[in-house]
Design a protein around this nucleic acid. Structure first.
Lengths: 169, 169
DNA sequence: GCTGAAATTCTGGAGTG
DNA sequence: CACTCCAGAATTTCAGC
């Protein structure tokens, strides 16, 4: 064998597998790849160092955390500014925020977050507006009432969320 | 003790922790909760049965899988129909699809997916249009060029994606 | 939910190609 | 440099309470 000079098919398989089975054992992963558990561990450590693996997560039904409102928000900015990412990082750190993406297109930010109720969502949106100030033009949003797939995990129908319509804030 | 008849604060902490540290050991989790590893395991098994835990996933930088284009798509439907979920389930099963959400608001579907290049994205969108036929009005989309947080994992800046603007298809 | 013991997995170092 | 082997450590699992 020539070793893992760069990045080979086995590394790719490790990444693909860990996405779908985040808690698979090194032994089982090694069995599938034809590698020893120690080699798999070496590769995973390397993949973390390289930044290929950012972390591990469980896919949780939010209603068990008493968060009955899941929403996506699209932020339309008036202007780009270094402050935007600074503000977004602050909100990204919140426990009820699942994802914060910077995007191209009509809007510039996509946020996915969960809330106990509509009031909490409104307060969140209010703080977002307050923090971004004149940089924000509007927030388009909608509730997420079903997840066919989430974080690479195919999820059967889950308990439905409140069926309130989205709109503009 | 009466056991885990329903769902208590420790279960909630397990779910919250597993979201952020999907590969934490039962021992460490038990240490934080003041429970034995065996108890933690029992609870996690129960939480899986209940559907609170849907699965586990690693957060991967897609560029290591040679997917250099990450996008979100918002599908505006002309009408609701049982076929919609059937078609969406088919696309949700694809390896390059991260999430498929059913939503309220101006659009009815939110998809997040990764592609090797723009051509592959276009083909995907084309198949989506073909499969949904007259049920689909339009797809609004944009590229995701930075993830401040994803699947509950705060991710530093990653390699930037192609900076092509989004639009309507 | 706990305990204790057995089975499995993980980890780090030495040796090999 | 990556791999395997191997032994010790840690974790997981399963029984009984």
């Amino acid at each position: 064998m020539e070793g893992m000079v760069r990045f080979d098919e086995k590394d790719r398989e490790i990444l693909e597998t860990l996405r779908k089975e985040g808690r698979i054992t090194l032994t089982e992963l090694g069995r599938r790849l034809g590698l020893s558990p120690a080699s798999v561990k070496n590769r995973i450590d390397k993949l973390k160092e390289l930044g290929a693996i950012r972390g591990f997560s469980a896919v949780i039904d939010p209603s068990f955390l008493e968060r009955y409102v899941k929403v996506f928000m699209l932020l339309k900015l008036k202007a780009e500014d270094p402050d935007v990412d600074r503000v977004l990082s602050k909100f990204a750190a919140l426990d009820n925020v699942q994802a914060v993406y910077r995007t191209t297109g009509r809007t510039q930010v996509l946020i996915i977050a969960e809330f106990e109720d509509m009031d909490e969502m409104k307060r969140f949106a209010g703080r977002l507006k307050g923090s971004l100030g004149s940089l924000l033009e509007y927030i388009e949003w909608g509730t997420i009432y079903d997840s066919l797939k989430e974080c690479w995990v195919t999820t059967g129908k889950r308990g439905s969320f409140h069926g309130r319509k989205g709109g503009y804030i």
